[in-house]
């Protein structure tokens, strides 16, 4: 495990369009609904993520798990229900989205690094543009987080010169540079060659050990057992079952989860 780093102390969220509620939950979803045309992708999802909690979200493809976490930081607009992140509500019309995004970091399946920027520039870009940090301060912060994901020696390279696993670790560092209090992971290891999965999972586990609130869409069962406080099974746009990792995998209750787990093992 890497060096333990202090978790950034929670500061009051900036006052913006979003309204501050009295709640301790990191993420609070109530009856979240989302449709694409005729198809209803999320049919009333209610989920609370406590501060410091690590949740693994799984389900068959098309179950709405990606849509769910993309709604949380406003990459998709929800059609119904409420989303509150650290007490800041995200309105369906997009109000509050900038405030929410400051609180929430996101890691994508396909890394989505900026191809025309070096690794270091990828990490300093947002702190400089959105937080107004000086070049030196942003670089210092970036090198700190790059060291944290053990890729500081590649800071001068371009993303295309790195392996998939390295790119994903840079993507994690890039998100951390904004000092988020919550991290969302959208299948962070699904696009990786098998030999690179472990290096990314290890970084995620270290992050978890340092107390980060995490919501991960992943099918990595080993990671779920090690790290997850709670596993949530999503199918057909609704939460079918949720439980602690051990019970979730060993003694699933619903038939749909049993079937899903059987398929996963094959």
């Amino acid at each position: 495990m890497g060096p333990a780093l202090p978790i950034p102390t929670p500061t009051p969220a900036p006052q913006g369009a979003g309204t501050r509620l009295r709640t301790r939950a990191a993420i609070e979803l109530r009856d979240l609904r989302k449709r694409y045309g005729e198809q209803e992708v999320l049919r009333g999802v209610t989920l609370t993520v406590e501060r410091g909690e690590k949740i693994v979200l799984c389900g068959p493809s098309g179950s709405g798990k990606s849509t769910l976490i993309r709604c949380i930081n406003g990459l998709e607009r929800h059609d119904g229900g409420t989303i509150a992140v650290n007490g800041v509500t995200l309105e369906a019309d997009g109000r509050g989205v900038q405030d929410v995004r400051r609180e929430v970091g996101m890691v994508f399946q396909h890394f989505n690094l900026f191809p025309h920027m070096t690794v270091l520039e990828n990490c300093t870009f947002a702190p400089r543009q959105a937080l107004g940090l000086s070049a030196a301060a942003a670089a210092e912060r970036a090198m700190h987080h790059l060291a944290r994901v053990r890729i500081a020696d590649q800071a001068g390279k371009f993303p295309a010169q790195l392996s998939g696993g390295q790119q994903q670790r840079v993507a994690i560092a890039r998100a951390l540079c904004m000092d988020p209090r919550i991290m969302l992971f959208d299948e962070p290891t699904s696009a990786l060659d098998p030999e690179m999965v472990a290096e990314v999972l290890q970084v995620m586990e270290e992050l978890a050990a340092q107390g980060m609130t995490m919501l991960c869409v992943t099918h990595e069962m080993g990671f779920a057992r090690h790290v997850a406080d709670r596993c949530v099974f999503l199918d057909g746009g609704e939460i079918v079952e949720q439980a602690g990792a051990e019970r979730f995998f060993v003694a699933p209750e619903s038939d749909r989860l049993k079937r899903f787990l059987r398929q996963m093992l094959h």
Binding site: N73, G74, L75, Q98, R101, R102, V104, G105, M106, F108, H110, F111, N112, L113, F114, P115, H116, F125, A126, Q129, A130, A171, R174, A175, M178
Partner: peptide, 23 residues
């Protein structure tokens, strides 16, 4: 992808256009 990543970092859409999409 990169555009979404920039938005998810909390960057204002104008900067995302000028610094990511346009280049």
């Amino acid at each position: 992808g990169p555009v979404e990543a920039a938005l998810a970092l909390g960057l204002p859409p104008r900067i995302v256009f000028v610094k990511v999409r346009l280049p």
